[in-house]
């Protein structure tokens, strides 16, 4: 299979402290990779480095063959990376509809009139709740609604690759199921490739084709979820 995301020897620093060492990753088109590991091992930093929010201090990141290592975050978004960060980061004083419209900015340069077409209908199809609350301010929504909005906003830019940082963290169990179902549809119906950081191993295993365990900023184990059970790697993830 052709790879969509390819990382070679990527390192990242916060000031003087190195947080990622020599990361090599390859995610095939249409695939889903689960990044797992204990707290503070660099999973979020790795997603930020792919998005360009955090600078890679060495190595190379390629999206669909194009080197994006030196590109600014907005250019990577326009190249086809969607980002759902930890803590959701919805724009609190914008309405649901306005939040979704900001996501259309990723379509700039991809064809005339794409932004003018407005929010793609499939987002409300995936998350019907967002249609009902489209005029409410994002800051007053529940955690589950905000998460659906953050995913919807990333999908508004029609990404090839979607980065999800703990999408089910701190969300009511009944909403978690809705989000999981929607993410499965994003993979199967929209064909979006996904890299997901997930602490909840059962979901990670049922959702992703491949897993990658991070420890102290390095990848220590990789494999296919179909070939191993979650229990076999649980000791590397649980404290």
């Amino acid at each position: 299979m052709e790879s969509l995301l390819n990382m070679q020897g990527v390192a990242a620093h916060y000031g003087q402290s190195q947080v990622l060492w020599d990361i090599d990753l390859d995610v095939e088109k249409g695939g889903a990779l689960a990044l797992i590991g204990r707290n503070g091992v660099g999973k979020t930093t790795l997603l930020k480095t792919i998005m360009g929010v955090q600078k890679a201090t060495s190595g190379a990141i390629r999206l669909d063959g194009e080197d994006v290592t030196r590109q600014a975050s907005h250019d990577r978004s326009r190249a086809g990376i969607g980002y759902v960060p930890q803590g959701r980061h919805v724009f609190p004083h914008l309405t649901v509809e306005e939040n979704l419209m900001t996501g259309l900015s990723a379509l700039a340069g991809r064809g005339k009139g794409l932004i003018a077409k407005g929010i793609p209908g499939h987002i409300f199809d995936l998350f019907p709740k967002l249609d009902q609350i489209r005029h409410r301010k994002a800051g007053v929504l529940s955690g589950g609604e905000q998460q659906q909005l953050a995913i919807g906003r990333a999908l508004a830019g029609q990404p090839k690759l979607l980065l999800l940082d703990e999408p089910t963290e701190g969300i009511q169990p009944n909403v978690v199921q809705q989000i999981e179902d929607a993410l499965r549809r994003v993979r199967t119906e929209l064909g979006v490739t996904i890299v997901i950081v997930e602490q909840y191993l059962d979901f990670a295993w049922s959702f992703a084709d491949e897993y990658c365990v991070l420890m102290r900023g390095r990848t220590v184990r990789r494999g296919r979820t179909a070939e191993e059970s979650a229990a076999e790697v649980a000791h590397l993830v649980n404290v």
């Binding site: 929010v53 975050s73 907005h74 900001t102 996501g103 900015s105 990723a106 379509l107 700039a108 990333a154």
Partner: peptide
């Protein structure tokens, strides 16, 4: 940060 990650220059 989020604005940039949403494609806004």
């Amino acid at each position: 940060m989020m604005a940039a990650a949403s494609g806004i220059n």
